[in-house]
């Protein structure tokens, strides 16, 4: 699937010419820089509290980028600016620039509903709706489009297969999602995000509430999914970052300390603080 530029207004995405939007930049697909996300001097505040300081960071398309750093370093805040979930928090604001495939995300005129449909998010704690498994997965698609019954069923099946949950739940799609185990619930949440057809998947410590076995299955899933999606994962767990990610960004006290290929950052960090953190001297 081709990455589709993010238009400011809704347009019919089912057309095969992704650059038909008037408001999106008309850069041909092949010439587009490999970065999916670019941030320039991004600063963010909660009320008067500055939580991010002039972040410059590029995230490559179809790769897994891990945000690591001690609690309160701003990594989750940064993630929540990528789909503007911070809009729901009174007093949250940001300056600078974030662009996703060239479209500015901090633009006041941006249609955030449209943005969130192109950016899936998986939360720290599994949060399935108190509905059936099928309705959970179909929730997002139904919001945005009108599908035939067969398309919808196929979409649910493929999404559940994509999150490696299909075999476990195919016989009980109409039973409540709350009956699933924690790991299954989290995979359901991933299926739910996939079903909308996003370009970018955000994962906010997706395994922190799970047991080691479920964690392993989710990590494997993340590695599989990066062939289709750009994935940004926030994690506390450095082993997890080194296992799943291609690039890693290390944050400390709201500043981006170091970023680079994951294996390099973990073996030969350039910065002292990165080294201290990845070797477990603090954090």
């Amino acid at each position: 699937m081709k990455t589709i530029p993010l238009p400011k207004t809704n347009m019919d995405q089912s057309t095969t010419t992704p650059t038909s939007s008037t408001s999106a930049p008309t850069v041909p697909v092949a010439l587009r820089p490999p970065s999916a996300i670019e941030m320039n001097s991004l600063s963010a505040w909660y009320a008067k509290n500055q939580v991010l300081h002039a972040i410059d960071l590029d995230i490559a398309a179809k790769q897994v980028c891990a945000f690591i750093g001690p609690s309160g370093c701003g990594k989750s805040t940064l993630l929540r600016w990528l789909n503007r979930m911070n809009d729901t928090i009174p007093g949250a604001r940001a300056t600078g620039k974030i662009s996703l495939h060239g479209v500015s995300l901090l633009d006041a005129a941006l249609d955030v509903v449209d943005l969130r449909r192109r950016v899936g998010m998986v939360f720290q704690k599994p949060n399935p709706f108190p509905k059936s498994i099928f309705d959970n997965v179909a929730f997002g698609p139904r919001l945005h489009r009108i599908y035939s019954r067969t398309d919808l069923e196929e979409l649910v099946e493929q999404s559940l297969r994509a999150s490696a949950l299909w075999e476990e739940v195919k016989d009980r799609l109409s039973s409540s999602a709350l009956g699933l185990s924690g790991g299954q619930q989290q995979r359901l949440c991933i299926a739910r995000a996939i079903a909308v057809g996003p370009e970018l998947l955000l994962m906010d410590e997706p395994c922190s509430a799970l047991d080691p076995r479920s964690t392993a299955s989710i990590e494997e899933l993340i590695r599989e999914l990066r062939t289709t999606y750009t994935i940004v994962i926030v994690t506390h767990n450095m082993q997890q970052a080194s296992r799943v990610s291609d690039t890693t960004a290390f944050f400390y006290e709201g500043k981006l300390v170091e970023t680079g290929a994951t294996d390099l950052l973990f073996t030969t960090p350039r910065e002292r603080r990165t080294e201290d953190y990845v070797t477990g001297r603090f954090g």
Partner: peptide
């Protein structure tokens, strides 16, 4: 968390 989930799906 339920509201967040729905919002993140573009509700």
């Amino acid at each position: 968390s339920l509201r967040q989930a729905a919002l993140a799906l573009g509700s």
